[in-house]
Nucleic acid binder design. Structure first.
Length: 429
RNA sequence: GCGGCUAUAGUUCAGCGGCAGAACGCCUGACUGUGGCUCAGGAUGUCGUGGGUUCGAUCCCCACUAGCCGCCCCA
């Protein structure tokens, strides 16, 4: 076994029938995005390492220890090798493309979505892979295009609630928060650190470490004994400036008007440096420690951070691997593979050519058809047909001569003679 | 990167220091142009990889690899 090649750690093959579910999800997402006037963008799967260092944040775990980075060969002796990285997320790439193609010069709000693989060198777990798939979207543009409006935030959240509902996911929760401007966040971080100092010794071991290394993470602690103390810590809402407060209130007002349910979660802090103001997460039970289906937020300073013009934006990324797991867990009846229209069973190899001709005609008419083989015994054809098709079409010498086919319906067990001219319609049912 | 659990047939899993097992699935036949239900028969495999202990290891020990669970972090 060790000598045979296997998919590398944290990567996997997606096979039928599971891929049908993936396709359904992707098709639903595309349809929903289209209704909101989002267009698809496809960015390269690897980028200059600097993009992620500047965009995602040098100090984040993603950049500091989870990227697949390598030095590309120099093209000439005089040239320095370039450091390249498999994209760990797609927002930075989208914003880079926005800057590179001067999309801001159009004066229009850019509404872009993507579906594709991302790469992080983390320890694999269920719902966490080293190559994982995200469906995401970004609404970004110059301020004159309304890119900074709280209505954009609310619209994106409303779109996501519609998408999840259309996918048949019930029981999701929208966790909503505002992290303010980067200055607000810095002030809050200091206040939190100060507030933690006298009480840290009463917290769990993890929190004692977090209190020093990453105070915001203390808010995420799930240890019951710690909750009383955590409740007494300062809230980020108290550190928001006037504009951020007004923005957040407007987002909430729009969500209320549209009837999108949400749960205000002052403890929701996101890991990437570029987030400002609105941050959110849609969670679902049954995913274990990885309970977030998707996450996102506003990033008003990202474009400038990577050398572009001011271009406020808001976006999200859905963890497709987790979405699939969630849907599989819901055991909706539709996950059962749909059966094709017909299985053609040629009787004897001499009718094989006639069978291909018939299959070609039926398929051209839009029917999904499986083709057996004349060497199969009829019993074998029936067994195979029953697994994949709703009906079996028996094609023996008799049928070829007369043009009247024998068709059996597996759901009723009824067998009928059907003239070729009526076959298409008969199989459609 | 750290800690714990796991690895046996296509799949889900039992098992034991001495010939490798079950269920489901698969193949053949009973039934030469009729599936499902039934019956009879058959094949499943380097027991994750490498090393050690032993007369003998799938079993015990060590290392490695991979998966799962948790931590860090995150979608």
């Amino acid at each position: 076994m060790s000598q045979t090649l296997k998919a590398v750690r944290g990567t996997r093959d997606l096979l039928p029938p599971e891929t049908a579910l993936w396709n359904r999800i992707e098709a639903t997402a595309r349809a929903v995005f289209a209704r909101y006037n989002f267009g698809e963008i496809r960015t390269p799967i690897f980028e200059d390492t600097l993009l992620f260092a500047r965009g995602v944040g040098e100090e984040t775990d993603i950049v500091s220890k989870e990227m697949y980075t390598w030095e590309d060969r120099a093209r000439a002796a005089s040239e320095k090798p370039q450091s390249l990285t498999l994209r760990p997320e797609n927002t930075a790439g989208v914003v880079r493309a926005y800057i590179e193609h001067k999309l801001g010069e159009t004066g229009q709000l850019q509404k872009l979505y993507y579906i594709g693989p991302q790469f992080r060198r983390e320890r694999p777990q269920k719902g966490r892979y080293r190559q994982f798939w995200q469906i995401g979207a970004e609404a970004i543009g110059p301020q004159s295009a309304g890119s900074e409006s709280p209505l954009r935030d609310a619209e994106v959240l409303e779109m996501l609630s519609s998408l999840l509902n259309e996918l048949g996911i019930s029981g999701w929760t929208l966790e909503l928060n505002s992290v303010g401007s980067s200055a607000d966040r810095a002030r809050y971080n200091d206040a939190l650190r100060a507030a933690l100092e006298p009480v840290a010794s009463q917290l769990c071991a993890d929190c004692q470490r977090r209190a020093v290394t990453n105070p915001l993470r203390v808010l995420d602690c799930k240890v019951p004994e710690d909750q009383a103390i955590i409740e007494t810590l300062p809230k980020i809402a108290e550190y928001l400036d006037e504009d951020s407060k007004k923005h957040f209130d407007a987002v909430i007002a729009a969500l209320d008007a549209a009837g999108v349910p949400y749960h205000l979660n002052p403890r929701l802090v996101r890991g990437l440096d570029y987030y400002t103001r609105t941050t959110f997460e849609f969670t679902h039970g049954g995913l274990g420690a990885q309970n977030a289906l998707l996450g996102g937020g506003r990033y008003d300073g990202l474009s400038e951070a990577i050398g572009g013009p001011k271009a406020p934006g808001i976006g999200f990324a859905i963890g497709l691997d987790r979405l699939v797991l969630t849907l599989q867990g819901l055991e909706t009846t539709e996950t059962i593979a749909e059966k094709i229209n017909a299985y053609i069973a040629p009787l004897g190899e001499t009718v094989n050519p006639a069978a291909l001709k018939l299959a070609r005609e039926l398929r051209r008419a839009g029917l999904s058809v499986e083709l057996g083989d004349g060497s199969f015994r009829l019993k074998k054809s029936f067994e195979a047909a029953d697994k994949v098709a709703r009906k079996i079409v028996i094609l023996g010498e008799d049928e070829v001569q007369s043009g009247i086919l024998t068709v059996k319906d597996f759901s009723t067990g009824a067998q009928t003679k059907v003239p070729r001219a009526e076959l298409d319609r008969f199989l459609q049912q």
